[in-house]
Simulated scan of single mutants.
Amino acid sequence: MSNQYGIDDIDIQILNGLIADASQSHKVIGEHVHLTGQAVGARVRKLQDLGIIEGTTVRWDPNKIGLTVHAFVTVFMKSSTAHQAFQTFAKQNSNVLEIHRVSGEGCYWMRVRVGSQLELNDFLDELLTFGNYKLSLSIGQVK
C-alpha cells in the first residue's frame, strides 16, 4: 500500500533498516526485504529524491575528542530585531549542535558542546549580544 508520498511498506522497511544502521549495505538490507541490493539502492535514491532521507550521519562520542561540557541553553531575545543576527550566529557556531525556535519559555533552545567551562563562558558572553539566557548542564545522558 502506497501513502501520499508514493512510498510503500517495503520503502518503510528499508528506511527503518537504515535508521537502525546506516552503514548496512544495500545487499544486506535487500536480504531482509526480499529485494536485490540494486533494487534497494534504487529505492534509497527515490527516498532521497523525495526528501524523506535528508542525509546520513555518524554516531560518535564527543567526550573522546575533548568536548566534555554538554549544555542546554534557553535564549531570551532582547529585541525583535535581534532574531536574524542570532540565527546566523547560532548556525555558524560549531559549538551549537541544535537550535530550535520554541513557544513557551524563551525564544530558542540550543544544545551546545564545548571543551571546557572557560569555552562555555566565552560562548555565553557572545550570546549576551542577542539577549539573556538560562543554562542547564548535562550530568549524564540517559538515551
Rank of each mutant, 00 (worst) to 15 (best):
Ser80Pro: 06
Gln84Lys: 15
Lys64Val: 01
Gly55Val: 05
Val33Met: 04
Ser79Met: 10
Ala22Ser: 10
Asp49Ala: 02
Thr81His: 08
Glu54Asn: 02
Phe76Met: 07
Gln84Tyr: 11
His32Thr: 03
Gly30Lys: 02
Phe89Tyr: 04
Gln48Tyr: 03
Val58Cys: 09
Val44Ile: 15
Val40Arg: 09
Gly17Ala: 13
Asp21Tyr: 07
Gln48Lys: 10
Thr36Gly: 14
Phe72Gly: 13
Asn16Pro: 01
Leu50Met: 10
Gly55Ile: 08
Leu47Val: 10
Val73Ile: 15
Val75Leu: 07
Asp21Val: 11
Ala39Val: 06
Phe76Asp: 01
Thr57Tyr: 08
Phe72Gln: 13
Leu18Thr: 09
Lys46Glu: 10
Asp49Met: 00
Lys78Asp: 10
Thr88Cys: 01
Asn16Gly: 02
Thr36Ile: 03
Thr36Phe: 07
Pro62Leu: 08
Gly41Val: 13
Asp21Trp: 09
Ile65Ala: 08
Val40Leu: 08
His32Ser: 11
Glu54Gln: 09
Trp60Ile: 15
Arg43Cys: 05
Gly41Asp: 15
Trp60Tyr: 15
Leu18Ala: 00
Ala42Trp: 00
Gln38Tyr: 12
Ala82Leu: 04
Val58Pro: 03
Ser25Ala: 04
Gln87Phe: 03
Val33His: 05
Gln38Phe: 12
Glu31Tyr: 02
Gly30Trp: 00
Lys46Met: 08
Phe86Ser: 02
His83Pro: 04
Ala20Gln: 14
Thr88Phe: 06
Thr88Tyr: 03
Ala22Gly: 11
Ala20Gly: 11
Gln84Arg: 15
Ala90Val: 03
Ala82Gln: 11
Arg45Gly: 00
Ile52Gln: 02
Val75Lys: 07
Met77Pro: 10
Ile65Lys: 12
Ser79Ile: 12
Val58Leu: 09
Ile19Phe: 01
Lys46Tyr: 06
Pro62His: 10
Ala82Cys: 01
Val75Thr: 00
Val73Tyr: 11
Thr74Ile: 15
Asp21Gln: 12
Asn63Tyr: 09
Leu67Met: 13
Ala42Met: 07
Gln38Ala: 14
Ile53Leu: 04
Val73Trp: 10
Trp60Cys: 15
Phe72Cys: 09
Gln87Asp: 06
Lys27Asn: 14
Ile65His: 05
Gly17Thr: 06
Arg45Val: 08
Pro62Gly: 10
Arg45Glu: 12
Pro62Asp: 13
Thr68His: 11
Asp49Ser: 06
Leu18Ile: 14
Thr88Gly: 05
Gly66Met: 05
Gln48Asn: 08
Lys46Phe: 06
Gln48Gly: 05
Ser79Cys: 12
Gly51Ile: 09
Asp61Cys: 12
His83Val: 08
Ser80Lys: 12
Gly51Asp: 05
Phe89Leu: 02
His26Lys: 08
Glu31Asp: 11
Val33Leu: 03
Asp49Tyr: 01
Ala82Met: 09
Thr57Leu: 02
Ile53Glu: 06
Lys46Val: 09
Glu31Val: 06
His83Tyr: 12
Ser80Asn: 13
Val44Lys: 07
Thr88Glu: 08
Trp60His: 15
